[in-house]
Amino acid sequence: MLLKDKVAVIYGAGGAIGGAVGGRFAREGAKVYLTGRRLETVRAVADKISSHGGFADAALVDALDEAAVEAHIASVAEKAGRIDISFNAITAVPQPGTQGIPIAELPVDSFLAPINLYMRSQFLTARAAARRMSKAGSGVILMNTPEPARIGAALVGGMGPAWAAMEALSRNLSAELGPSGVRSIVLRSTGMPETQTIDVVFGLHAKALGITPQQFQGFVEGMTHRKRFTSVAEVAEFAAFLASDKASAMTGTVANLTGGLIVD
């Protein structure tokens, strides 16, 4: 098992990405502490993991709440003895009003909304993990961004800058924490049709372009070398590898899982 006896904290675990990563980590032997703003959804993921013989704990944690994040991770560290992996998969930005609108027509608050939300949450959870990991001399902080973090994309408003800022934060974390044995990596993927919000996103962009959501999806998929989007399962599989000791040389970088949409 890649992650035998590792302790992982996952934020946004009730979503498709967070839930899939939690499940993959557990199958690789990790003890997973799942959090989210809707406890019943997180518990459903934990119950599924437990039914397959894995260890999963569910907790109500708003990843934008500094006190809640600190209290939860302190509790996990006390119970489990350490924090080996932190993965923040939150996608709580409301797309209507923030995407599908030309920048020249976008209200300033709508532009800043995703930047403020993503950066606050990623900073709070990464900082909480970094404090414990640096003292222990090991650990991995993971984030996930889509392709607009790197390429210029129309009608994404502040989303692209927010995702790019996440990647910059990860690099800075690596530079500061690397000497203490802590790694920081971003998984950059495509949009994923399995996620709960993708239909809304495709719909907003399609409407702005005067095409159907299916046409928009086909257009973007056609830009990849494989002619299909990255799947949630593929992201979860690679997240487990990156979190493992087999990826010990990787830090301060972005793992390109865009299927050729972005060519490094």
Score class of each variant (00 low, 15 high):
Met1Glu: 04
Met1Ser: 12
Leu2Cys: 04
Val7Met: 02
Ala8Pro: 10
Val9Phe: 00
Ile10Met: 09
Tyr11Trp: 14
Ala13Phe: 01
Gly14Cys: 06
Gly15Gln: 05
Ala16Ile: 02
Gly18Val: 08
Ala26Phe: 00
Arg27Ala: 14
Arg27Pro: 06
Ala30Ser: 05
Lys31Leu: 09
Leu34Asn: 14
Leu34Trp: 05
Leu34Thr: 13
Thr35Ser: 15
Gly36Leu: 01
Arg37Thr: 15
Arg37Leu: 00
Val42Arg: 11
Arg43Met: 12
Arg43Cys: 06
Ser50His: 11
Ser51Val: 05
Gly53Ile: 14
Phe55Cys: 02
Leu60Glu: 11
Leu60Gly: 06
Leu60Asn: 13
Val61Cys: 06
Val61Tyr: 11
Ala63Gln: 07
Leu64His: 15
Leu64Ile: 11
Leu64Pro: 09
Ala67Cys: 10
Glu70Ala: 15
His72Tyr: 15
Ala74Arg: 15
Glu78Met: 09
Glu78Arg: 14
Glu78Ala: 08
Gly81Pro: 13
Ser86Asp: 02
Phe87Asn: 07
Ala89Cys: 10
Ile90His: 06
Ile90Phe: 03
Thr91Ile: 01
Ala92Tyr: 03
Val93Cys: 06
Pro94Lys: 03
Gln95Cys: 00
Gly100Lys: 10
Leu106Thr: 04
Leu106Ser: 00
Val108Lys: 07
Val108Ile: 09
Phe111Met: 07
Leu112Asn: 10
Leu112Asp: 01
Ala113Tyr: 05
Pro114Trp: 05
Leu117Val: 08
Met119Tyr: 01
Ala126Lys: 03
Ala126Trp: 02
Ala130Thr: 12
Arg131Tyr: 08
Arg132Leu: 10
Ser134Gly: 03
Ser134Cys: 11
Lys135Asn: 04
Gly137Tyr: 07
Gly137Asn: 06
Ser138Lys: 07
Gly139His: 01
Val140Leu: 00
Thr145Ala: 06
Glu147Leu: 12
Pro148Gln: 12
Ala149Tyr: 02
Ala149Ser: 13
Ile151Trp: 00
Gly152Val: 03
Gly157Cys: 03
Met159Ile: 13
Pro161Val: 06
Trp163Gly: 01
Ala165Leu: 10
Ser170Asp: 09
Arg171His: 04
Arg171Trp: 07
Ala175Ser: 02
Leu177Ala: 09
Leu177Ser: 08
Pro179Ser: 04
Ser180Glu: 04
Gly181Phe: 10
Arg183Trp: 01
Arg183Ile: 14
Arg183Asp: 04
Ile185Trp: 09
Val186Cys: 08
Arg188Lys: 11
Arg188Trp: 03
Ser189Asp: 13
Thr190Trp: 15
Gly191Val: 05
Gly191Leu: 14
Met192Val: 15
Glu194Thr: 15
Thr195Gln: 11
Ile198Lys: 08
Asp199Tyr: 14
Val201Asp: 10
Val201Tyr: 14
Gly203Gln: 09
Leu204Trp: 02
Lys207Asn: 04
Lys207Ile: 12
Ile211Trp: 13
Pro213Trp: 11
Pro213Gln: 09
Pro213Asn: 06
Gln215Arg: 08
Phe216Cys: 04
Gly218Arg: 14
Met223Trp: 01
Met223His: 12
Arg226Val: 00
Lys227Glu: 03
Glu234Thr: 05
Glu237Ser: 13
Phe241Gln: 04
Phe241Glu: 02
Phe241Thr: 02
Ser244Tyr: 05
Asp245Gly: 03
Lys246Leu: 07
Ala247Cys: 09
Ser248Asp: 07
Ala249Cys: 08
Thr251Arg: 00
Thr251Cys: 03
Ala255Lys: 10
Ala255Tyr: 04
Ala255Pro: 14
Gly260Cys: 02
Val263Ala: 07
